[in-house]
Design a protein around this nucleic acid. Structure first.
Lengths: 234, 234
DNA sequence: CGAAATATTGACCAAATGGTCAAGATTATC
DNA sequence: GATAATCTTGACCATTTGGTCAATATTTCG
């Protein structure tokens, strides 16, 4: 899988001795805190800059500046720009996969689908840059995703497809192709993050409001459920 | 609007004297031909390279090489990388706008929508790189699109929305929000070009076939029409 | 304390890249 | 054929950028 942020010499970070060795001096200058906080700031700055300018357009200087750290410091925590980028990407992938796992054949399609759409829309609102980094990566042919698409993602989609097929078999959904259906869900929800400027321009908004997202979500749920549930709802 | 490819000293290219002055020597070394063919090759090479690597990632050397021309020649026809990029972009925008204009209140929604979806999917198949260049531009905040989004595009969407509203008023469509509906159409169709690697990975294809596009189109039309047409189709 | 580990940072460098230029080749025009 | 206009291209350059390094500061812990 995607190379996780390099752990320098941090040994096994989970190893906690029987009696806690380091009593946490309470005041914040702990080394672990320093590393954690600096890495977090870099990752968040990187997400923004990569989203705004793409991989090549993003400079380590700009990222460091956004994180309010000297550039040399960035290269201390993440050896290369590529390593930093991969770390950002790994965060997004984890996010994406998790959401797909909430489907199970026992649930009601209408409810499960509405929840998934709402969740994806929430991410589009809260982490638009995460979505943009991912979109950018995919648009350019996924050069850093190695086996993610054909392994992890494909596997999850197959599981999702199995659920959909069972729902169809039980007459709870119209006969749709599960894979194209999942593309459908991804496309319409991520659109609001990835194509945000276009959405704003067309809606005439300076910034997308909560109400805009609520309206978009409702519209998507409505269109999608009408599209894929059996004709007679009851 | 977007700066068109610079016309150097080409005067008015449409002016044709009463008696054709230049009898077209038949063998192809005409200056006009040279310019046309070289510009076309550069534009097409640029579309590919910009799609694959983004604006910053694309180098003029790579574009020139793809067009099988020396780099200095590229800069002869398009003064700067930015000018070349804008020319590529202008082509895509023209494509996109044209399609939206085919809606009119007199048509049947089902037929007009199915045709629009099919047309957009055709573009996703035939010119995926055009779509990718546009997607890339939008994802990064449309830094080169100037007023296009808020002017031309918004205007066309308003016209489209008016048609949709009239259909709704006549009971020919379910009450959807026209703007979110158009986002829906764009998202699902362009997804097959922009996220092509992901689609391929999930479907387990080396390359998307005509059959894949046909299936995708059918699925989208089906889902969308069921989603937006009145409950009793007849 | 004192030595080891970790963190900070300004200065620096090699490679890549957008763009220029001048000299020459080709095509048009009179 | 001569002159002008356009096209072609290798060599070149200034700037940007990812990454290094050595010197210094800070934290950890016996």
């Amino acid at each position: 899988m995607i190379e996780q942020r390099k752990a320098q010499k941090s040994g096994n970070p989970q190893r906690i001795p029987a009696v806690a060795r380091r009593p946490r001096p309470a005041r914040g200058k702990d080394r672990r805190d320093i590393r954690e906080s600096n890495e977090a700031r870099l990752l968040q700055a990187a997400e923004t800059v990569f989203a705004e300018r793409g991989y090549s357009g993003a400079t380590t200087a700009a990222i460091a500046s956004a994180a309010r750290l000297p550039k040399a410091n960035l290269h201390y925590y993440f050896r290369t720009k590529e390593a930093l980028y991969r770390a950002v990407l790994a965060n997004v992938l984890a996010l994406w996969l998790d959401e797909l796992d909430r489907f199970s054949p026992e649930r009601e399609p209408a409810e499960a689908l509405a929840e998934y759409i709402a969740a994806k829309m929430r991410w589009s609102k809260l982490r638009p840059n995460a979505s943009k980094v991912f979109a950018n990566e995919i648009v350019h042919g996924a050069p850093f995703l190695d086996g993610y698409l054909s392994r992890e993602l494909r596997q999850r989609v197959e599981r999702f497809a199995a659920v959909i097929r069972r729902w169809i078999a039980r007459g709870k959904m119209a006969p749709v192709d599960p894979r194209h259906f999942v593309f459908h869900l991804w496309a319409v929800t991520q659109h609001y993050a990835d194509f945000e400027v276009q959405v704003r321009a067309v809606l005439g908004r300076e910034k997308l409001t909560d109400a805009d997202f609520a309206a978009a979500t409702a519209e998507i749920v409505n269109l999608t459920l009408r599209g894929c549930l059996p004709q007679r709802p009851d």
